[in-house]
Amino acid sequence: MAEFIPYGRQCITQADIDAVVDVLKSDNLTQGPLVPAFEQAVAKYCQAKYALACNSATSALHLACLALGVGQGDRVWTSVNSFVASSNCALYCGAQIDFIDIDIATGNLSIAALIKKLKQAATNNTLPKVLIPVHFAGQSCDMQAISNLATEYGFRVIEDASHAIGGQYLSQPIGRCQYSDICIFSFHPVKIITSGEGGMALTNQAALWKKMQLLRSHGITRESAEMREPSHGDWYYQQIELGYNYRMTDIHAALGLRQLNELDTWVAKRHQLAKRYIEAFQGTHIVPLDQTPLNYSAYHLFVVRLAGLSFRSKQHIFNELRKKNIGVNLHYIPIHLHPYYQQLGFKQGDFPVAEQYYHQALTLPLHPGLNEQQQDYVIERLKRLYLKEAS
């Protein structure tokens, strides 16, 4: 098969293109009506009260930490199996970061490991101010259990749901914020829906929404009630805090708003493809991540573990699949193994389950544009290479 098969790919229709072109022809390329329309549509879909669009999920994570008062001397914990944005956002605020090991079957943070770490932290006064659970590959963490622990130990919760818009937990949409303070989505091109670049923070707490809204745009307000002195006129604004330029444009919002119409259809297609993978690998040592009965995954990624093989064998399979134009990938390098984080004191062996997962994991192509012929080609090649390496 000559055509390259990527692990993820955006789906762009003529209707998407038309929506963006309409904005380009309008008077509002940046701060027009489509950003709030996109926010309201996502909030409605997720059954949350408030939503705030940003230029990336990383920016949204940073704003979420700031809104919860994360600063110097605070501690933030997150999953070690994630992209570095999940932890970098705390470092941007001057906080200390630490990690939770994972459940190797799901790739999500381990509730048992979290409980153990919380009990230890409670004895030496090192409890986190904020926990950032990561809904890896589109499947929610056990948020009810995390919420109960947050109440018991007194920390706040930011869901990093960058992979998970369109998914459900306990039959409710991810993003509803029933068990968290803030929930973050990503609209990067390989995610479930895209706005080109972009992210969004959802919350049910007006104070957090207003704080993030202020910090998203330089800490500037035009609301007279928030000003430190009376307004000088309709032109007047004041910077009352040190904020950032984390705004989304109407160009990006137009694409995201249009793509939202396809969300349920695309997630359903991802489920169909995932089912074919799962059935194809039954009875082999190619092991897909478990899907818990609490969840309806958004299936941003389809990850398998190549059980029983060495890391070198996995490397060989990865390289051979790439040579066959199959764009496999790896999600993720455990964050504590990156040189920057090792400079902070983390080292190999700190989170052994995540390290074992890293040695075994392989991300296979999964996106709505993947057809069954391409998928069968991926399955056949992977099985053949696995058997060769295992023999």
Rank of each mutant, 00 (worst) to 15 (best):
A145N: 09
L118G: 01
G198Q: 05
C46M: 08
Y153A: 06
D101E: 08
T30E: 15
V80H: 00
H188G: 14
G138S: 07
R216G: 03
F99E: 00
T203L: 03
Q315S: 13
I333F: 10
A105V: 08
P293I: 08
F83S: 12
P36I: 05
S147N: 13
Q139M: 10
A361F: 02
K388S: 14
D18N: 14
P173I: 03
P339G: 09
L242G: 11
H316S: 14
F351W: 07
A122Q: 12
L257D: 00
L66D: 03
Y277H: 05
N108T: 10
Q178F: 11
E372C: 11
L66E: 07
A95V: 02
V157G: 00
G196P: 06
L385E: 07
D22Q: 14
E223P: 05
E241Q: 13
G369I: 05
L263P: 03
T203E: 01
Y299R: 10
Y377I: 04
K314Y: 05
P6G: 04
K269F: 06
I278A: 15
T13H: 13
N124Y: 12
A51I: 02
M200K: 03
G94H: 10
G154F: 08
Y236H: 15
G8I: 03
H367Q: 11
L366F: 06
N204T: 05
A48R: 01
S147Q: 14
T265C: 12
P365A: 05
V378R: 00
D250I: 06
A15S: 12
R305W: 01
R75E: 09
A48F: 01
A390I: 08
L34W: 06
C177A: 11
A225C: 13
Q96T: 14
Q14C: 12
L370C: 04
L306A: 01
A298G: 08
G219C: 05
Q375M: 09
S56G: 15
L309F: 04
F187V: 05
S86E: 04
Y7T: 07
P352T: 10
P339W: 03
C183L: 07
Q374A: 09
A150L: 05
L29V: 12
D350L: 04
N81K: 13
I251M: 11
N125R: 10
V303M: 10
D101R: 00
T123H: 15
Y7E: 06
P368H: 06
D22P: 07
Q239F: 08
G349K: 05
T78A: 10
L263G: 06
A274E: 02
G71R: 08
N204E: 11
T58A: 15
F346A: 04
A15E: 11
G69K: 03
N204C: 07
S224D: 12
L66N: 05
P33E: 10
D16H: 09
G256E: 02
P6Q: 07
Y237K: 15
I192E: 04
A67E: 02
H367P: 02
A161F: 01
G327N: 07
Y299V: 09
R228K: 13
I317M: 05
R156N: 12
I146T: 00
N88R: 12
G8Y: 04
E320N: 13
G283D: 04
G369M: 06
R270Y: 04
W266K: 13
E372H: 10
H188R: 15
P128C: 08
Y169C: 01
N81W: 10
Y357W: 12
W209D: 05
H331S: 11
A274T: 09
L370V: 03
A121C: 12
H359E: 15
Q10K: 11
Y244P: 00
A201E: 00
Q72N: 12
I17S: 14
G243W: 00
